[in-house]
Every structure is written in C-alpha cells, then in structure tokens.
C-alpha cells in the first residue's frame, strides 16, 4: 500500500514539473542550473469525503538540487525531495523522512527528471504511451499506462497541458480518486537557490 502512495507521489514529479520542458514547441527550455518557481492550487477528490480537499502554496524546482513543495493552506507543510530522499516537515519539525535507498524507484525517477526537463519524453515511454495534441500556444499531453494490470502503477491517466510552462495536470487513479493541479506565476531564474532553499535541500541528506 505504502508503495503505492510513494509511487503516486513520485510519479507526480516527472509529470508536474518535468513537463515544463521543451517537449512541445511553445515550452521554455530549462537549463540544469536554472530554477523554476511558482505557485500551485490543488484540488483533491477522495472517495468517502464530503467535499474536495483544496490546498495551495508555492514550489521550487532546481534540477541540480531538488524540489520544494510548500503547502500554505490549509496547513503549512513543506516537502523537500532530492536524489538522497524525501523530508516532510510541519512548522519546522520533520514529520517524515524517507531515504532514497528505501524507495529506490525515486532515484530512477529523479534521474528521469533531468532527461524530461531537457525535452526527452522517451524516459517515460517505458511505462506510458505518450500522446500529444494541440498547438504551441495550447498543447496537451496524455499519458496512459502501458499496462493496466500492474499494481505498481497508481494512475489510470495523467493529462498535462500548458503553454510556456505546464499549467495544468490532472491525475486519475484507478479507485476513482483524482487530483487537479493548476500552476500560476511560474518564472525561470538562472541565479543559485536562496539560502533558505539550500538549507531545505541539505536537510534531506541523511
């Protein structure tokens, strides 16, 4: 079970961030030392819940360092993921730490990240069929798992759309739960990460 959560978690990175690359003509090319920052709004629909669970916050993607996912509402929570693993903290206190060796798949996916950022969709083609549609101004990519009977595959489909950057991601799960992510105010910077960001990335090292 946990594996599934983890995989669900991990799969998002190549899908939500990595796709902000030059796979489609209109997409901005992201260099290895570049940093992408922006805000997100997430709407989560879980079965058995009264209504959708909404959250919003900011994110940082630095290919050379890792990813910071900072939920601000409804509860401040920061998740940092780097090649060494994952750390989640609430109010500055670590509540979860998963070293990469515990979830080796992460390492693989993290490696894939770079490739996808450079516009290399091939890395995902082992597990998904990749179908593109739309134009430069409004492109869409539909990812469908190659095998539906694989229990390690937590999604039934992933839809990514955008213009210069990824703007929307919809994740559908086999059990009917779904996530819709909207990205706003995305900006690319070539400056090194801030001191606070560096500190966050370093916190993952075991």
């Amino acid at each position: 079970m946990t594996r599934h959560f983890l995989l669900a978690f991990l799969f998002l990175f190549p899908s939500s961030i990595a796709f902000a690359a030059n796979a489609n003509a209109g997409q901005v090319v992201m260099g290895n030392s570049d940093i992408l920052r922006g805000r997100f709004i997430e709407e989560r629909n879980l079965k058995g819940f009264n209504g959708p669970m909404n959250s919003e916050g900011h994110f940082v993607v630095a290919p050379e360092h890792g990813v910071i996912w900072g939920v601000e509402k409804p509860f401040p929570t920061t998740t940092v993921i780097t090649p060494s693993g994952l750390v989640q903290s609430v109010g500055g206190i670590n509540v979860m730490r998963l070293p990469a060796q515990k979830i080796p798949f992460m390492l693989h996916l993290y490696d894939m990240l770079g490739g996808v950022l450079a516009g290399n969709w091939k890395a995902l083609e082992t597990d998904f069929t990749v179908a593109r549609s739309g134009d430069d101004q409004n492109w869409q990519v539909l990812l469908l798992p190659r095998r539906t009977d694989n229990p390690a595959m937590p999604f039934s489909s992933i839809t990514v759309s955008g213009h210069q950057f990824v703007e929307n991601v919809v994740l559908l799960k086999p059990d009917g739960d779904s996530d819709t992510l909207t990205f706003l105010n995305e900006a690319l910077s070539s400056k090194p990460p801030s001191a606070a960001e560096k500190l966050a990335f370093n916190s993952v090292h075991p």
């Binding site: 959560f5 998002l12 989560r44 996530d179």
Partner: peptide
C-alpha cells in the same frame, strides 16, 4: 494532515 494535503495524495479516502 501534511500527507493528505501534501504534494500528492499519500493516502486514499
């Protein structure tokens, strides 16, 4: 809570 609202669903309903 952080897992429910964090990055992606680390939990199902």
């Amino acid at each position: 809570l952080s897992q429910v609202y964090g990055v992606v669903g680390l939990a199902n309903g």
